[in-house]
Amino acid sequence: MNLGDVVIEEDDIYGDGVNVAARLEALAEPGGICMSRSAYEQVRDKLDLNFVDIGEVAVKNIGRPIRVFKIGMDQKADNLSTPVAPPVPATMMGQRVRATIGLALLTVFLSGVGLWYSPISVRTDLPVPLP
């Protein structure tokens, strides 16, 4: 988590804020959150969480070390987190896939039947080659 400059041009996003945030993400433990000093100063008195000062960390492509804080993942953090929606059961996904495949096969079959029984015009004005 970082506060910094972000530039958006067409489909590209870049800037100091993006670079620092990417480096902080790499420092975080799985499921954890690391933040820069600027982000920490904005939230430290507003959230009842345990912040751990990691210290100054030198990271790739950033000219100066970054002061890094991480959120202590304890009961306080769990109480503030948003539960993740459960994934769609595999059985429901399988039913949808089978139904889609069935409809596709039915469409192909009915198209073939329609072509088989469609009247074919035969030109009678063409000369017939003799054997």
Rank of each mutant, 00 (worst) to 15 (best):
M1F: 14
M1I: 05
N2Q: 12
L3K: 03
L3N: 09
L3S: 06
G4E: 06
D5C: 03
D5R: 15
D5E: 14
V6E: 14
V6N: 13
V7H: 12
E9I: 11
E10Q: 13
D11R: 01
I13L: 14
I13A: 15
Y14M: 04
G15Q: 07
G15L: 10
D16H: 07
G17W: 10
G17T: 10
V18Q: 10
V18E: 03
N19G: 02
V20Y: 05
A21H: 06
A22L: 03
R23L: 00
L24R: 03
E25Q: 06
A26S: 10
A26N: 01
L27S: 01
L27P: 07
A28W: 04
E29I: 08
E29K: 14
P30H: 13
G32F: 06
I33L: 09
I33N: 03
I33G: 12
I33E: 11
M35F: 05
S36V: 03
S38Q: 03
S38V: 00
A39G: 02
Y40F: 10
Y40H: 08
Q42V: 12
V43Y: 04
V43E: 09
V43C: 02
R44I: 05
K46I: 01
D48L: 05
F51S: 03
G55R: 01
G55D: 05
E56T: 13
V59A: 13
N61A: 10
N61D: 09
G63F: 09
G63Q: 08
R64G: 00
R64W: 01
P65M: 12
I66M: 01
R67M: 03
K70Q: 11
G72N: 06
M73Y: 08
M73Q: 14
D74F: 01
Q75W: 06
Q75G: 04
Q75M: 10
D78E: 06
D78V: 13
D78H: 01
N79E: 14
L80D: 02
L80P: 05
T82R: 07
T82S: 00
P83R: 06
P83H: 03
V84P: 15
A85S: 12
A85E: 14
V88G: 06
P89A: 02
A90D: 00
A90Y: 11
A90P: 06
A90T: 10
T91K: 08
M93V: 15
G94V: 02
Q95N: 04
R96E: 13
R96H: 14
A99C: 01
A99T: 04
A99G: 00
I101S: 09
I101H: 07
G102L: 00
L103A: 07
L103Q: 09
L103H: 00
A104R: 10
L106D: 13
T107K: 02
F109M: 13
F109Y: 11
F109K: 11
L110F: 13
L110D: 15
L110S: 14
L110A: 12
S111V: 15
S111I: 03
S111K: 02
V113R: 00
G114F: 15
L115M: 11
L115E: 01
Y117D: 08
S118F: 11
P119E: 01
P119F: 06
I120Q: 13
I120T: 13
S121R: 14
V122R: 12
V122F: 12
D125N: 13
D125A: 09
D125C: 07
V128S: 04
P129E: 05
P129N: 10
P129V: 10
L130Q: 15
